[in-house]
Structures are given as C-alpha cells and as structure tokens.
Design a protein around this nucleic acid. Sequence first.
DNA 1: ACATATTCGATCATAAACGAACATATGTGA
DNA 2: TCACATATGTTCGTTTATGATCGAATATGT
Lengths: 391, 391
Amino acid sequence: MSVPEAPDLLPDERRERVLRAVRRHGTVRVNDLAQMLGVAAITVRRDIALLARRGLLRRVHGGATLPHDESATGTSADHSQRAHGEPPADAAIEDPGTSPGRASRSLTLGMVVPSLDYYWPDVIRGVREAAAGSSARVVLRGATYEAADERQQLTRLVEAVGVDGLLVAPTTTGPEGEELVRWLETSAVPIVLVERAATVGPYGEAMESVVSDHVNGAAMAVRHLAGLGHQRVGLTATAGSPTTPHVRRGWQKACDELHLRLDGVPDLRTMDHRDPSWPDTVNEIIDACLASSTTALLVHSDPEAISVVERCQERGIDVPTDLAVVAYDDQVAALCDPPLTAVRPHREAIGRAAVSLLTARLHDSTGDRPAHSVVVGPQLIVRDSSVPAGG
Amino acid sequence: MSVPEAPDLLPDERRERVLRAVRRHGTVRVNDLAQMLGVAAITVRRDIALLARRGLLRRVHGGATLPHDESATGTSADHSQRAHGEPPADAAIEDPGTSPGRASRSLTLGMVVPSLDYYWPDVIRGVREAAAGSSARVVLRGATYEAADERQQLTRLVEAVGVDGLLVAPTTTGPEGEELVRWLETSAVPIVLVERAATVGPYGEAMESVVSDHVNGAAMAVRHLAGLGHQRVGLTATAGSPTTPHVRRGWQKACDELHLRLDGVPDLRTMDHRDPSWPDTVNEIIDACLASSTTALLVHSDPEAISVVERCQERGIDVPTDLAVVAYDDQVAALCDPPLTAVRPHREAIGRAAVSLLTARLHDSTGDRPAHSVVVGPQLIVRDSSVPAGG
DNA sequence: ACATATTCGATCATAAACGAACATATGTGA
DNA sequence: TCACATATGTTCGTTTATGATCGAATATGT
C-alpha cells in the first residue's frame, strides 16, 4: 500500500487525479481520496461536486462513481463513450499496426515480479491499466529473488495457466541468472523482460525488454547538482539492488562529462535502511561527505535518503545549504521534511510499455519482427533538498 | 540563488520555455516557473494568459496545464485557418458534437529524412504501413544533411501543413546539430527522433527516439566471427555515416569482451563506394588485412562489402576461407556472389516503431508520459561470406 | 423504529493566488 | 534628445482555495 502521497498539487491536477481514480476503480470514497491526496475531506467533496456538475462523474453518498451515460453529456473530451463499469484505459495504447479486423481473442499475459511490496506495485498498476485497455487478462505471480523459484512460477504460468506471453523481471545476475536467461530463451511464448536486459544466443542478440534509463536518471541528478554550483557530488547506493550499477555508471559518466572531481568523493555501497547496521552507516555516509568537503549527495533509494537527511538535521547540518541531497527513486521522497529532490523512474509507464511491447509481438503476423527494447526516461523532480531558496 | 537559469531571455523565448515546460511536465506552477525563469510571478501569469488566449495551454489556478484537446487546435491554430477574432481558447468548453474522443480525428504526421535514396525508403515504408494501420496521414519531406534546410522543412510542416507530430532524422552532430536540437526542443508538436538520439534541457533529459542498436549489431557480427575461430577481426566503415561511430564502438566492445587482439588489426574509415578514390581504397583495405593476418572483416555498408569481396576474388583471395566478410547493412548483400553474411538493421520496424511511439504520445491524456526510447535490435543474417562449408 | 456512526454542507477564518493600477526600466524611431 | 511603445516589477485590494467547526442529513446495525 502506498503511503499517502502528498506532493502539493494544483487544484486542477488534483481534480484530474480524482477523475482518474474514479475511472480506474469505478468508485471511490471521499475519505480514501482525502488521505491519498493529502487534503481535507471537504476539499475532495468540493472537487467531486465540481466534477459532477460537469458530468464527469456521479456523486454518491460517501464518494463518487462513474456517470451513468457519458455520451449524453458530451462535455468530456478525453474519455467519453466508455461503457460504464469497465474502468480503465487512459493508457497509451500502442496499436501495433495491425489492421482493425484482426482476430481479437482476448490475451492472457503472465507476469512474474520479484516482490510485491516495493517498486513493483506501481509497475503492476501500469500493466493492469494497459492490459485492460487492450482487454487482456493479467495473471500475476510474485517470486522471491531466487532464480529457482522464478523458474517454477514461469513454468506453471506457461504450462498450467496457458498464458500467451510473459512479462518477467528475473534475476539476471550471477550464475543462476545466466541459467534462467537460457531457460527463458527456450520458452514457448514471447517474453518481455521488465527492468532487466539480457542477450541470448550465440551472437548475443538482445532480448525484448522495457527498462528505466537509470544511467541517465543518475546523470540528470548530477547535472542538476552541478548546475547549482556543486563541485563534489557523492554517491551512496544500496548494494543489493539491481539498479545500483546503472546509477553508479550514470553518476560516474556525468561527473566525467562535467569535469567534477571524483577523488576522495564518497562512492559508497550500503545495506538498506532496514538493516540493523543502518544507523551507523548513515553516520559514516555523512562523515565521508564532511571529510571530503562533498556538498552534494545522490542517495539510492529514497527511504535511505530520508534517513540521511534526518540525521543531517540532528547533527546540525543544513539540507540543502550544507549538503544538497537528491534521492534516487521517488516513492516517499516527497514526504520528507524538507521534501526531497528525487529522480523518479516512471514505474507505471514501464508497466504500460511492457504490455504494449508484448501485445505488439503477439499481434505480429510478419514473423520477422526484430527485438525491441524500450527505454523509459526517468524524471527529475526538483524539490527542496537540493535548491536553497523557497519552493 | 542562481537556480537553473538566470540569463535574461527574450520575452518570446521565455514564453517558449513556459510552453515547453507545460508540454514536458503536463502541468506547471506559476511560482516554480517564476523562480526557474528568474522573473516575477506576475510576468509568468501574463505569459500564461497570452499563451492560453492562443489555445496553446490551459490556465488553471496556480499554474497551467495542457489544453484539453491539444491535437485539435493547438498546432496549426496560430495564423492560417482561424479568424483572429475568435480565440479558440475557450474551446476548453468542449464542442460536444465534433470530438467524441481524441482518437477519432485522424492524425497527420510529418516526417523529415536526410535522403530519399538510401536506407530511408524502407524506414518510410514502415512508417507508411503503420500510419495506414492507425489511419494517420504522413507528410514526407526530404532534406539534405544541412541543418538549416531541415529547420526550414520542419517549420513549414508545423506551421503550414499543421502536422500533429514529427518524425525527424536530423543532423545531431556538430554545432548546427546542437542548435537544431535546441530548436526541436521548442517545437510546438511532439517529436520522435529516428535513428538519432539527443538529450535536452538543463538536466539532459532524453528526447523520444527510435534507433537501431548498431552497437550490438556490430558486436553480434564480431561474436559470430569469433565463434568461427577468427582471432583478428578488422573493421572498415564509411567516414561520413552517422552509424559508423556506433558500429565502431560495438566492434571494439565485442573484441574486448572476447579478448581479441586489436593491435595492428585494420580499423579504417573510408569514403563510400561512389567516391573516385574507392577502387584504391579497396586495395588498401585488403592489403591491410593481409599485412596484419586479419582473417575476418566487418565492412560498413554492404555496397562497399560487395566491392571488397569482388576485389578479393580478383586477387585470388578466397571469401570466406582466406577472409571472412560480414557486411554491416543488408540492402544488397544478398545479391553478391557469394551472398554476404550481413547485419540487418530492420528499417521497416524502425519506421513502425516510430509511428507507434508518436501516436502513443499524441493519444496520451495523462500529460506525464515520460520520454520513451525504442531500441530495435538488428538481425544477423548468416550467408556464405563468413562460413566456409555449407552453412 | 431507534441508536450510532458517518457523511454532508453552511459558515467562518486564513492563506495563497490573482489582477488592476501605478511605477520603472529598456529599447526604438523621429 | 525626446516621445512612445513594450516589458517588467510593486503595491494593494479582490478573488479563490482550503481547512475547521458544528449542526443537519444520511447510512447501518439491532
């Protein structure tokens, strides 16, 4: 369950979100929305009243639902004529160039993700939305980070469930990873890797994949900080994460390009914030910055970033004046005080793109469709932890 | 202090930036913009009001968002077509009858390619096919490799033809390239780069693009040759081509990975086969291979590869026994005798993917769709110029 | 039906955003 | 140089957005 998201939105943006929530879930409760949007219930009510007046949704006691007949009102530009009851699909539906009369047997897509509590829920949401938009069904399996487990899940999905294609976020590092990829290669159904990439075959052809451009994401953070005048930008990243190597590469690349010094600048790999040793680690991180007069720090995973900022404040180090902090990942970064500047991989877009890619392949009739890889650019959300003035 | 920027811009430039910010982020806040642009809030407000009057964005309390029916009015509304008296701005009060959802209005896509006689016809075919599949219209313009020319074409497409989006294969190298990219950034319509990539903005965000993975394409060729036992794999590539750097990088990378020697191995950049000096160049290429006992050669552009093979045969050098040849590009490679093994960038797929990407963006209603880049994997077509016996 | 728990909405208070009017540049052309 | 248009910033009163309070209205369970 995601934390109450509280980036202060424009009134109009908020209403847009209310509308999206209604379309996605069919019905919404005032209080849920209020909590989610970080505003008072009365505000949500007023929003709903406004939207209802425009015919965009229907007010009911306790919340709102989809309007009964949308086409009659005609006031909505972007979503009309959706039969009520079927929520979704303001998603980007990528039509794979198939002609309209194509056999539209509804597809079943299998998805295996390494965890269900971090990062992936948003990806899954994107998958769900996009799948609903092309009336495909999604069968979800959560695996641990053990490759054997993943193979079991995958086998089941293909053989027992009979999915038409797979979205897989597998372990691709280490020996089991290699083996898993080789196993995937032999799969009977098309596969799209999600947030992973791999090459297969004797010549090292690329597998189909959808990934965030973490390299450029990290580079963007560095460029932002360099633009603010910082000469020494440090990095700390959780050792276990698959994205860490990419973040580090992007950080290095951008520092090189901008001729920022790297000698002595912290480049740390740490446990994550749930590890018992974390409190000590935070101090070490901060000490390393102080010792090397590093004035800006990119912190992989926003919970860790929040932790660093809090400790800085306890130690009398002002953020952003003494140390500018940018979080890599934007799940909870907005909730910190001050709100953290963060690089946000667009997780829903990843999910949507993965479905697009897989359905495009499944609909391909030519048979010589080459492997497509989609790279989704992260966004840099500038908040207060990096810029001195107000925001 | 000096946050992102402070250079005082021309009013018009500033408005372009406002517009760009809205297009990039979906919504913007007056205060954020004011700070970013280094002007007072009232100025931003006035800009927003002006732009809203032209229908280029929608005013909301606290900022601005994308206009509701962007594709309908936004692009060509500027001068032609529309009487001055009627600001289409309040088309925000949607016309009920005409637009029952944005998907219905057929799109017009503009495309500018650097040439019409090599490589691009197949890309264009892919574009045409995909566009027809989603009943979009394509307006094509050929430009030379001069950036000024491209800008003229692009301006015309946007302002006179009124395209909804652009597929552009621009010059992105050299100073004109930089400038062109900056110009593209301010464009009023979404853009997808084709076979090019670029980053924009203060943080270097990626532009939307569709490219062939020439790096891995070349690497695949090397892996193929290494798999056949070759220890020294040379490269020759035409100096003028934009793909050459990628091919070279892939070749180097694969050689490194496979621990193939690079010292003394030919790494040549040449004129193309229409240059008067080409016949001499071919001999030099072959001589370089003989001199360094290089037994395999990757040749950029298949006409050049054919030429090399023919000369080899004239000189009594057997292909593939004495020298294995792989062509990079597969337009005419199959017609050689022996047929050439070739790396084939899937040009039609490039075109199709570009249309998919652009239409997906044009249909996006959320406004926070991040930049997607599609990387299409080339295929290695193994023929007789690399494998000795029956392949 | 009754009791209880929510939910709703009128009203007021506060904060932020807005815009009219005026003031101050910064050019531009006679 | 002056007259004049344009562009921008400042002040201040007005409008909009939001939250808190509290009595009324609406569900829900017995």
